[in-house]
Design a protein around this nucleic acid. Structure first.
Lengths: 204, 204
DNA sequence: GCGGTTTAATACTGGTCGTTATGAAAAACT
DNA sequence: AGTTTTTCATAACGACCAGTATTAAACCGC
């Protein structure tokens, strides 16, 4: 019973997500958020809680709406295809929206005041979870002979993640999609070749 | 004539530099800065100007004091050695100080409020200048036959920079030096080989 | 040692931050 | 229709932000 909410919570969350994507957690003020959402301040508090809870909801939604290519990639048959799909889709996402380039996770809170420490750690945890999934996928690939015996799945996963993070930084700096695709090409050009695929070329 | 300054400007600048390194431009408050410097607020204004000017001085000092390996690297004989030196020295710098891990340029201002836009652009410009130097060095390497005719110096430079930025993000997240060195190893494992060095191994 | 000049320390400014109290408007239940 | 409950909009809260006015202390030349 009682009055109904006059705004669509998910639509508002999408608008807030874009603000955080562009300005990061601390850089986004409630003035920015209310303007983008078209909703007054107390409504945001009643719908989501405080700013940190709001950001975490936006982060969840970000992975649901935009990071669908991660599970997609993990299901591809070879480690190389997994990496390629991750990298190319990431380039697309990082450059698709000119007004909020890059990645919410990286833009969100790389460094900042002590008050945002918990948010920073949350972002780190999410990245670490993704990297762990990737490492496990590469371990499987190694067991399947898709990656050579000398391959180090943890280093390979960290390498792919480094490219992803580095390109997010570059996208935020205005790098073109073409340039970032060339970076991906370069990154993939040295992919290790396993026993089951020794016919693959060594350099793209 | 008049009273002498009681503090060493360069020592203070080093202390401020470390605060920015850890918290970034917007995340560092004057409360943080004065505490780290052991100097009161008006003294910082009289010595450096406002916060932005202060940050730019700190950034200059950062490159002078800690980024000496960049010109070092550019003078090495082969493109691969240039890249290797950049990457390994960067890992060392990013993990040398546990209380301010990563890179000042990346931590400084990746995203934030509109007021820090000029600072963000300044950091982007500095990175672009470094990348341009690297590209030119790779163009020379290509002309010398050190890189193959098919090599794209701009993509190669962007690739190396992406690894550098990505590792800076990872270092800030607490990655160990060993892990990052493994990332560098992976990044270098597929380095293109030119006609003058066809005897080099294709995979590490 | 005395006047002129620069630095040092304290305290304050207007503005913005995240958060919340308050009272009016609107919907559902009795 | 009347009552209750929830949402809405305005406006306020204390805290902190970057930046500064003010006054006392230290140094110089004389």
């Amino acid at each position: 019973m009682g009055r109904h909410r006059e705004f669509d919570v998910e639509k508002v969350l999408d608008a807030l997500l874009c603000v955080f994507w562009r300005k990061g957690y601390e850089g986004a003020s409630y003035a920015d958020l209310t303007e983008a959402a078209g909703v007054e301040r107390p409504a945001l508090y009643s719908a989501f809680g405080n700013k940190e809870a709001l950001f975490r909801r936006a982060l969840d939604r970000y992975y649901e709406r935009y990071m669908g290519f991660i599970p997609e990639a993990l299901q591809l048959p070879t480690a190389r295809e997994v990496a390629a799909h991750l990298l190319y889709c990431s380039v697309d996402l990082n450059t698709r929206f000119p007004d909020h380039a890059g990645c919410l996770n990286i833009n969100g809170a790389l460094a900042g005041s002590d008050e945002s420490e918990t948010v920073r750690q949350a972002l780190i945890d999410v990245r670490a979870a993704g990297e762990a999934q990737l490492r496990e996928r590469f371990e499987r690939a190694k067991a399947e002979g898709d990656l050579p015996e000398t391959a180090k799945p943890d280093a390979l996963a960290a390498f792919v993640m480094a490219i992803l993070h580095g390109m997010a930084v570059q996208a935020k700096a205005g790098f073109s999609r073409e340039m970032l695709n060339a970076v991906v090409e370069q990154a993939l050009s040295t992919w290790p070749v396993g026993a089951s695929r020794t016919t693959a070329t060594a350099k793209a």
